[in-house]
Design a protein around this nucleic acid. Structure first.
Lengths: 353, 353
DNA sequence: ACACCGGATGTAAGCGCTTACAAATTACGG
DNA sequence: CCGTAATTTGTAAGCGCTTACATCCGGTGT
C-alpha cells in the first residue's frame, strides 16, 4: 500500500539510480486539466472526446512520458493480454524456432508471450503452469512435454490450452498434432528408394510419443517394402547430439551391417555424422543419414543434411493463431502443413557391393 | 470493472470451456472463516498466526485451488518480480543459451524472466522497452542490440538496466563487457602458431561493436607477429550461416591466397565450412577455420570446430546475478570468466608448400 | 420559450491484494 | 481479580486502472 510503496521508492532512490515512481493516469489528468476517465477514454479510444481536450491530454502524456500500468489494467479488465508458453528448453534450436513463430504472431496482435522452460520434467512443468496461472495469462500454449493428458484436461478448466505434438480432444484444449508417423515413413521410403536394405534407426527417449510415432513410420515403410525389421538396428538416443554419437558408436561396435541411418531428429543426426567421421566413415558414401525437423542449421552441415521438415516455425505461428481463436470463443480451424522430405546431400545410394 | 468482467466470463463460459473466474483471497477467507488479512499473512508468512487458523486457511486454499493474482499483488506492492529481457532473436542458438542462463538463475530466486526479441532493429527494441516498462518489470537485461548509449542512459532513469557486450558507465546501468578483442587475438594467434601466414577474416555486420573488436584483435595478433594486414582478406558477413557461405565464396573467387579463416562467430564458420566443401576444399587440410562463441553444436560439427568460447550461458547467469544485486541496491561485483580458445579439429598446420 | 434529447464529461465503485492502524484477545504482575 | 502490555486478528484504505451511471451541456421540435 501507499506507505510501503513510497518507502520502497525512497530506499531505491538512495541506493541505485532512483526511478521516480512512474506517472499515473491521475497525474496526467491533473496536468491536462481533465478527469481521469477522460484520459482513460482517450488512451483506449473508448469514447468520443473533444479535440482540444484530446490534444491537451496527449501533450500531457508525452510530457510526463506516461505509460499505462499493465498490472492495473489487467486487474480492472480481468485479462492480461499475455499468453503463457511452456517449452521444454528455451535454448533448444528446435523449440527456439517455434517460440519465435509464436512471439511474432502474438506480438502483431497485441499479445505478449511469456516463455518458460519445462526441462522435460513433470514437476518443472507444473511449476510453470502454476506461475502462469498465477499471472492470470489469458491462455497457455504447451510445446510437447510430459504432462499427462488427464492433468492437461484439468488445467483446461482454468485456462484455454493449445498443445502441440499430441492428439487430445477435451473441452478447452486444442491440439495440433504433427504427422510424425508420415514423416518417419517418408524418410525411410527415401532411403529404400535409394536402394538401402539395412537401415538403422536412432530412437529418442523410449516412451516419448514423437519418437514412437516416427519409429512406427519407419517400421511401416520397411514392412511395405517387404524388408524385415531388425530390432538390432534400433538403438536409443536422447534427442541430442550426444545421444546420436553414442547410438552410432554402439551400432558400429555391434557389427550389425547397415548402410543407412534414420535419426529421430536432426540433433541426433548431427551426432551420428560425427560418430561416422570419427570412425573414418564417410557420409553419404559409406553411410547415408536422414534427420527429422529440418533445423535451420541442417542445410549448412557438411554435408547438408537430408531431413524431414515439419516447420516448427509454422507450428509456433499456428498455435498462436489457434489460441487467439479460442480466446475469441471460436473453435480453431487451424491445421499444419504436411511434413515434407527435404533431400540434400547426406543420402546416396549404398556402395555397390 | 465488475460488471464487465462478469459479462466477459459469462461470454466465455458460453463459448469455450469456461474458466470460472478464479478464486480470490476473499473467497478463501470466507471458506476458512477468517479475514482476508489473515489469509494474506499466512500466504506471505508476514506475521504469526495461530496454528488452527493456519490449518483452516491452508485447507481452504487447497480446496479452492487458490493462486494469488500476481497482477493484484504487483499493483499493491509496486513491483512485479519480473525481469524483462531484450534479446535480438529468441531462436538464435547463440542467444538461446544466454536466455536459458538468465531464466534458470532468476527462477531459482523467485523472479520470472520476460523475453522479447529486438530483431536487431532499433524500433523493435524501443517497442520492447515500452512494453516492458508498461508491465512495470523490476529491471531489464539487454543482450547486445542497437539502442544508443544515450537512449539506454535515459531508460535507466526509469528502471535498472544490465547490458551485455558493451562498456558503458552510467547511473542505473551495469554493463558486462565481453573481451572480444582478446578472443580475436587468441584465435588469430592460434592460427599463426600453426604456421599460417595468410589468414582471412569473415567479419560480421560492419558497424557492429562485437565484430569490430574481434577484428581489432585479429589485426593486433597479426601485427604482433609481424604479418602485414591485407584488407583484401577481410570480407563482410552477417553473423549467420548464409553470410559465411557468401563471404567464403567471394574470397575464393577473388583468388587471394589464404590458408586459414577466422570467422566472427560460429554460425559464420558453419557457412564457411559449407562453402569450402562445395568448392571441393577440405577443412582443415586445405583451409583451417576458427569460429567464435563455442555454440553447443560446434563440438558436433564435422570436423568439430575450433573456436573461442565466451560461455554465453554464464553471461546469462551473470547478468541475472548483476540485476538482482542492483535490485538490492548493491553495486554489482560480477565479472565474466575470460574468453578461452577451444582447439578442436577444424584447424591444422597449412599444407607444406 | 420550454421540455426533451443526445453527446461530452465527471464521479465513484470495484478489480484482488497488502498493510497501517484499530480492536480484540491473551498473558502476566501485583 | 484487575490493570496493562503483548500478542493476534480484523477493518479499511489505497495501489492504477476501467466503466456504469449521473451530470451537464447545447441543440431541437413545437
Amino acid at each position: 500500500m501507499s506507505k510501503r510503496a513510497a518507502n520502497n521508492n525512497a530506499k531505491k532512490r538512495a541506493t541505485t539510480a532512483a526511478p521516480d515512481s512512474p506517472p499515473t493516469l491521475e497525474m496526467v489528468a491533473k496536468e491536462a486539466g481533465v478527469s481521469i476517465a477522460t484520459v482513460s477514454r482517450i488512451i483506449n479510444g473508448t469514447a468520443k472526446v473533444s479535440p482540444e481536450r484530446k490534444d491537451a491530454v496527449e501533450a500531457a502524456i508525452a510530457k510526463l512520458n506516461f505509460r499505462p500500468n499493465a498490472a492495473a489494467r489487467g486487474l480492472a479488465l480481468g485479462k492480461s493480454n499475455t499468453i503463457g508458453v511452456i517449452t521444454q528448453a528455451i535454448d533448444s534450436p528446435f523449440y527456439g524456432e517455434g517460440l519465435r513463430g509464436i512471439e511474432d504472431y502474438l506480438q502483431q496482435r497485441g499479445y505478449t508471450a511469456l516463455f518458460m522452460s519445462g526441462n522435460w520434467d513433470e514437476q518443472d512443468e507444473e511449476r510453470c503452469m502454476s506461475e502462469l496461472l498465477s499471472r492470470r495469462v489469458d491462455g497457455i500454449i504447451i510445446f510437447s512435454g510430459r504432462l499427462q493428458d488427464r492433468q492437461l484436461a484439468n488445467y483446461a478448466k482454468q485456462v484455454p490450452l493449445v498443445v502441440t505434438a499430441r492428439n487430445l480432444k477435451s473441452p478447452g484444449i486444442f491440439s495440433l498434432p504433427v504427422d510424425d508417423e508420415q514423416g518417419g515413413m517418408l524418410a525411410t521410403q527415401h532411403l529404400i528408394g535409394l536402394g538401402h536394405r539395412h537401415i538403422a534407426f536412432i530412437a529418442g527417449i523410449l516412451d516419448h510419443p514423437d519418437a514412437s510415432l516416427r519409429y512406427k513410420g519407419y517400421r511401416r515403410a520397411l514392412a511395405e517394402a517387404g524388408i524385415p525389421h531388425d530390432p538390432k538396428l534400433v538403438v536409443p538416443g536422447d534427442f541430442h547430439e550426444e545421444g546420436g554419437v553414442e547410438a552410432t558408436m554402439r551400432l558400429l561396435r555391434s557389427g550389425h551391417k547397415f548402410t543407412a541411418l534414420f535419426c529421430v531428429n536432426d540433433q541426433s543426426a548431427y551426432g551420428a555424422c560425427l560418430a561416422l567421421y570419427r570412425s573414418g566413415l564417410n557420409c553419404p558414401r559409406d553411410v547415408s543419414v536422414v534427420g527429422f525437423d529440418d533445423l535451420h542449421s541442417s542445410s549448412y552441415r557438411v554435408p547438408p543434411l537430408t531431413t524431414v521438415r515439419q516447420s516448427i516455425r509454422v507450428l509456433g505461428e499456428s498455435s498462436g493463431a489457434a489460441m487467439l481463436q479460442m480466446l475469441q470463443g471460436e473453435k480453431p480451424d487451424i491445421s499444419l502443413p504436411r511434413v515434407q522430405l527435404i533431400v540434400r546431400e547426406s543420402t546416396a545410394a549404398p556402395k555397390s557391393v
